[in-house]
Design a protein around this nucleic acid. Structure first.
Length: 572
DNA sequence: GCCGTTTTCGGCCCGACTGTTTTCAGTCG
């Protein structure tokens, strides 16, 4: 039984919550939270690191004590200190902290005064009017608790980036109409192009005394105004999305962009660096004593700290500060670098458009080539093509290529990887194709070992070229199937296979961390839309965003290559 | 509990808003 990083991180976070409720040293509490964040974001599993004999105390925020505790969790699946703390402090109290407005102190106060130990206790106490009598609470906070409880579902809700764009776009249009507004930018994880966002953080500059806040809170989608000040307001939209608006003066715009773009750990690292250099860094600028020395642009702030400007996608405190210091940041791939698309479906299987329509759409995007990768025979629900139909399609593509101008269709197939690791079409047929895209579409529930072996065995086939959507996850819907991704990537490099970064906004698979690992291992990536219609081809930009988060450069991505270089990449 | 370009001890990012208080603690990002 493998212990996942997320489980270790969860244990540390829960321990931090309970210790905080008990009133433990706040820096000790923070140490557990920092460690949780390091572990959660780490590209390799703690279990694997330990197996390889690595020293975990080398990791940021993890010292000897926590390294030992991680070892215990990996070995036994349990954290004794957490058990011990849970004996004295009910573990459900940590869940109460999920209610907005309730932090450790208030949870403790309610526990001590009213013996509130669960969400149900909390609701009872609020409904019966007992909470307002506890010192530090009043009628308003009691009402808020009751209202929040009704909305609380127990799940942390994060919105897919594409959905966040749909919510954000009309709101920005609304804000642009405000009097006196100058700059508007959506910051936060949205600007870092994370696959999901928790809330929208909007930053604006505006003329002094303008009515931007009034304009913001009067947006017709606003369901609730949670707070409202001169420089900051928070609302909830009818979609449930939380939106924060901050207004700063123009001289602070760069510093504020950095601050609100985050990530939080990136900001903390920047501020610490500032302190070492004798500066104070905040959202208004970089200060020497009381004097602002810069802040108008992001570049000026980074430069003052001795750093090159860092693209938002890299701001996770995953080594970007060190790279920026040495001027060794990657030259991140851009959408303009993309020359073609290596995964697309037509109406022959489960797509919605014809070969010709798809080809013309790809040409309109400025691509040189588009690969047609309809499903293979096993995937009957998607009308997968058997040998006969695929060979007919191959001939049709040949004919069409004669007529097409400015775009070349590549002959391919999204071939099912069967449970035993064999491919769903005979080698004699696969050899007729320019290359193959291979994927798992069934039997997701195999053990980690079996699933990994299944993929490795499939890659042993000389006709295997690209591993499509390697984890099979659907964001917010289906977890990845269990695999040893590092092993798969190493095997891909050894065999000359390519791994896909599927650009569908609900997939984005490889993950950012997976991309980074692939790059470090020297595995080439195909960023592909898996388009099932003409309009899906626009999703390439989400794939590029994710690739940038994974530190990928143009040279790491096969579909940045011109057509005449592709064939070589598909020769094993 | 972690960490080190004045440190192995003594610090630990910083500011806005709310509600309850009577000058500020708690919460949040």
């Amino acid at each position: 039984m493998t212990v996942h990083n997320s489980e270790i991180a969860d244990s540390f976070e829960k321990l931090a919550d309970l210790l905080e409720i008990e009133g433990a040293n706040q820096f000790r509490v923070r140490a557990y939270r920092n460690a949780a964040s390091t572990i959660r974001g780490y590209p390799r599993s703690m279990a694997d690191l330990l197996e390889d004999g690595e020293d975990l105390s080398e990791l940021p925020g993890i010292g000897n004590d926590l390294a030992q505790k991680i070892g215990t969790i990996v070995e036994t699946g349990e954290l004794p200190l957490l058990k011990e703390v849970e004996e004295r402090t009910p573990e459900a109290l940590s869940e109460l902290m999920m209610i907005e407005g309730l932090g450790a102190r208030k949870v403790k106060a309610l526990h001590d005064a009213l013996n509130v130990n669960s969400l149900a206790d909390l609701e009872r106490a609020a409904a019966s009017g007992e909470i307002r009598r506890v010192s530090g609470f009043g009628e308003k906070s009691e009402k808020k608790i009751l209202a929040r409880l009704q909305k609380y579902s127990g799940e942390e809700k994060r919105t897919r980036l594409i959905d966040a764009e749909e919510i954000g776009r009309p709101l920005i249009e609304h804000l642009e109409k405000a009097d006196g507004i100058k700059d508007i930018v959506i910051t936060g994880s949205y600007r870092r192009r994370k696959e999901t966002v928790g809330d929208l953080d909007i930053l604006v500059t505006a003329k002094q005394g303008s009515s931007v806040m009034d304009h913001f809170t009067s947006y017709n989608e606003v369901d609730e105004i949670a707070s409202r000040g001169k420089t900051r307001s928070t609302v909830f939209l009818q979609s449930g999305m939380q939106v924060d608006l901050r207004v700063v003066p123009q001289v602070s715009f760069g510093a504020a962009q950095i601050y609100f773009t985050g990530s939080k750990s990136h900001n903390i690292a920047l501020r610490k660096l500032g302190i070492r250099k004798g500066f104070k860094v905040n959202e208004y600028g970089v200060f020497k004593g009381d004097k602002r020395v810069c802040g108008k642009t992001e570049e000026s702030v980074y430069a003052k700290l001795g750093l090159a400007w860092i693209p938002p996608e890299l701001r996770e405190d995953h080594g970007e500060l060190e790279a920026a210091k040495k001027d060794k940041l990657p030259r991140l791939i851009t959408l303009n670098d993309i020359r073609g698309n290596l995964h697309a479906h037509t109406s022959a299987s489960d797509g919605h458009n014809s070969l010709k329509e798809m080809a013309e759409a790809a040409r309109d995007l400025g691509y040189d080539y588009l690969a047609i990768t309809d499903h293979s025979q096993r995937l009957t629900v998607a009308n997968g093509l058997d040998k006969k139909r695929l060979l007919a399609q191959v001939r049709e593509i040949d004919r069409l290529n004669q007529k097409l101008d400015g775009i070349v269709l590549l002959k391919s197939s999204e071939v099912d990887i069967l449970e035993d690791g064999s491919l769903d079409l005979p080698d004699s047929v696969l050899r007729e194709l320019d290359f193959t895209v291979c994927a798992i579409h069934h039997r997701f529930g195999l053990s980690r070992k079996k699933q990994t072996e299944r993929i490795l065995r499939a890659m042993d086939n000389i006709n295997f070229n690209i591993l499509a959507h390697p984890s099979g996850r659907l964001i917010n819907k289906r977890p990845p199937y269990e695999t040893d991704m590092e092993k798969i990537l190493e095997a891909a490099r050894e065999r000359g296979c390519i791994v896909e970064l599927n650009a569908q906004p609900q997939r984005l698979d490889l993950t950012d961390e997976g991309c980074r690992m692939a790059r470090e291992l020297g595995v080439k990536i195909s960023i592909a839309t898996d388009a099932h219609s003409i309009s899906d081809m626009d999703h390439m930009r989400f794939g590029v965003d994710q690739a940038r988060r994974g530190w990928l450069e143009k040279s790491d991505v096969v579909n940045c290559q011109p057509l005449d270089k592709l064939a070589k990449l598909f020769t094993r």
